[in-house]
Amino acid sequence: MKSPVAGIVALFVLFLVVIVGYSSVFTVAQTEQALVVRLGEPVKVVTEPGLNFKAPFIDTVISIDKRILDLENPSQEVIASDQKRLVVDAFARYRIKNALRFYQSVGSIQAANIQLTTLLNASLRRVLGEVTFITVVRDEREALMARIRDQLDKEADGYGIQVVDVRIRRADLPEQNSQAVYQRMQTERQREAAEFRAQGGQKAQEIRSN
């Protein structure tokens, strides 16, 4: 007949085994990659989904998204090569291609977004500052977006990030400039209409005289 002490010891040992076993495994989801850190030092990167093992209690698992992520950029004012001011609304899409480099350089998606926003704005100013207003809004927008993406991707590589796309949603004159342009166009149309009415009135008078 087993003593109560032996039963308690057995339960305690079983409890320890369960805890150790539970802390020795981790699961990587389909949309994630995992960085295993041992006492603050990176040990390995797991990119394939499924069940994995780690050293219990001393290893920490950091999950890093491997989906394509969106970077929303606030509207920026850019000066084109013909000195026209543009309000540019752009966004980027990126993914984390090197989890270790990403962790060591920026550490989080929030920090990466801040850094990428700075780089994207600098790239917008460089590329759009070399071309005219008409080129940006009408002629070569696709080519300009590709140039901005390539520049941003090259700079983001140091953070373990791949930039897959950059899009300019809107590139317009500032509100006060747009209003001035609209008023000039309106004045010009009114002047042309007055000339047409005057010419029509003159023709009508000639017809009545005849």
Rank of each mutant, 00 (worst) to 15 (best):
K2L: 15
A6N: 07
I8D: 06
L11K: 08
L11W: 10
L14C: 15
V20G: 03
F26D: 10
T31H: 12
T31Q: 11
T31C: 08
T31R: 14
L35D: 09
V36K: 05
G40C: 12
P42C: 07
V45D: 01
V46S: 04
T47N: 04
L51G: 05
F53M: 14
A55R: 13
I62G: 01
R67C: 08
R67M: 12
L71W: 11
E72N: 14
P74L: 09
S75E: 13
S75M: 13
V78E: 12
Q83T: 10
R85D: 00
L86R: 01
V88R: 09
D89W: 12
D89L: 15
A90V: 15
F91V: 04
Y94H: 13
Y94L: 10
R95P: 13
R95L: 14
K97R: 09
A99N: 00
L100I: 10
Y103R: 00
V106A: 04
G107I: 05
G107K: 02
I114Y: 06
Q115C: 02
L116P: 08
T118S: 06
L120C: 03
N121S: 13
L124P: 05
L124F: 03
R125T: 00
R126P: 02
G129N: 10
T132A: 03
F133I: 00
E140F: 00
E142I: 11
A146T: 10
A146S: 11
I148L: 04
Q151I: 14
Q151R: 13
L152S: 04
L152Y: 03
G158V: 03
I161P: 02
V166M: 06
R169D: 07
D172K: 00
Y182L: 15
M185H: 04
T187H: 15
Q190E: 15
R191I: 09
E195W: 06
F196Q: 07
Q202W: 08
K203P: 00
E206H: 03
I207V: 10
N210V: 07
